[in-house]
């Protein structure tokens, strides 16, 4: 083989090498390390080799730990509530705003802002607005003549609502932008055909737009659901999990278990449980898109066969 041919054969490996090295050393290895650490009784002052191997005891402890189970439940409740609200509002707004209006692109730009700003800062802004006396909400309530403000961050029900509102503010635009993009790439012919058949706005939405957008909407929902399980900073700044455990999501509990309680093994076990749950969600999403692709391909083929 000539030197040039050999160099050409090596080129792809050369291009891939840096990425492979970084991903193996800084992502895959840490994840494997995390799984191993979850079987240890390990504190930050020890090297990992000095930690005691305790098998599945961390997991056994977690599954009987009322506080951890509570945080798991809070996480699921939080994700379910925010994703439902964001889907309804986001898709609803996309349906309302899917028309030729001036300034739609400026509107979209403005809607991206909340997603681009650091979660820490989002938490800060909302914490200020929820402030019992100087916050804009309670001030307005007082100016309207009510004696009592709302205990936004000091009551367990209200703090959950407060955290949900902040997340809906930040992430509804994500759903809106994806839904609007999907809507604007719908085949015009289907909508025009429906118009000729005398369909009204409502029928067009329910019978044509929503069913055609379904694949995109489901992927959007799953993406958002995965991200909702990753939320940490906004809640940390707003409530730090409290009052009590009312807003303590799993990610926050992992952070506190590692940082405050110095139980690295237990934190690793929690991380692993969270990862397994997210992996199940992701695989479900991937399988769904594959099935959907196959179905579209079949339908296209059938349509072509009909044309011929």
């Amino acid at each position: 083989m000539s030197a040039v041919a050999r160099a050409n054969r090596l080129t792809p490996y050369m291009f891939l090498a840096p990425a492979t090295v970084v991903l193996v050393f800084a992502l895959l290895y840490p994840i494997g390390y995390m799984v191993y650490a979850s079987f240890l009784d390990w504190s930050p002052s020890q090297r990992i080799g000095e930690a005691d191997f305790i098998g599945l005891r961390n997991y056994a402890n977690l599954l009987t730990d009322a506080a951890f189970l509570e945080s798991f439940w809070v996480t699921i409740k939080f994700a379910a509530v925010v994703v439902t609200l964001e889907m309804i509002i986001g898709v609803g707004l996309a349906l309302l705003l899917d028309r030729n209006i001036r300034g739609l692109s400026l509107l979209r730009t403005i809607f991206i802002l909340p997603m681009m700003i650091a979660p820490i800062v989002v938490g800060l802004m909302w914490r200020y607005m929820y402030h019992p006396t100087v916050g804009i909400f309670n001030r307005t309530i007082k100016n309207l003549g009510f004696e009592q403000g709302i205990p936004w961050l000091s009551d367990s029900t209200w703090s959950f609502i407060a955290v949900v509102i902040a997340d809906v503010w930040q992430w509804t635009p994500f759903i809106f932008i994806l839904a609007l993009a999907a809507m604007q790439s719908l085949p015009r012919s289907a909508l025009e055909a429906a118009e000729i058949d005398g369909a009204n706005e409502w029928q067009k939405i329910v019978l044509i737009k929503i069913p055609l957008m379904m694949p995109v909407l489901i992927v959007t929902l799953l993406l958002r659901l995965i991200d909702a399980f990753k939320v940490l900073e906004v809640i940390m700044v707003l409530t730090n999990g409290g009052p009590g455990l009312s807003t303590e999501i799993v990610a926050l509990r992992i952070f506190r278990t590692a940082q405050e309680f110095q139980e690295l093994g237990e934190a690793a076990a929690m991380s692993n449980l969270l990862l397994i749950m997210l992996m199940a969600l992701t695989i479900g999403m991937f399988m769904y898109t594959k099935i959907q692709e196959a179905r579209t391909a079949r339908m296209l083929k059938a349509a072509q066969a009909e044309d011929e």
Partner: peptide
Amino acid sequence: MRMVPPAVLLVPVFGI
């Protein structure tokens, strides 16, 4: 990879 939360990387990244 998108699904891996930073919180999950906390313990291993600290240790390694």
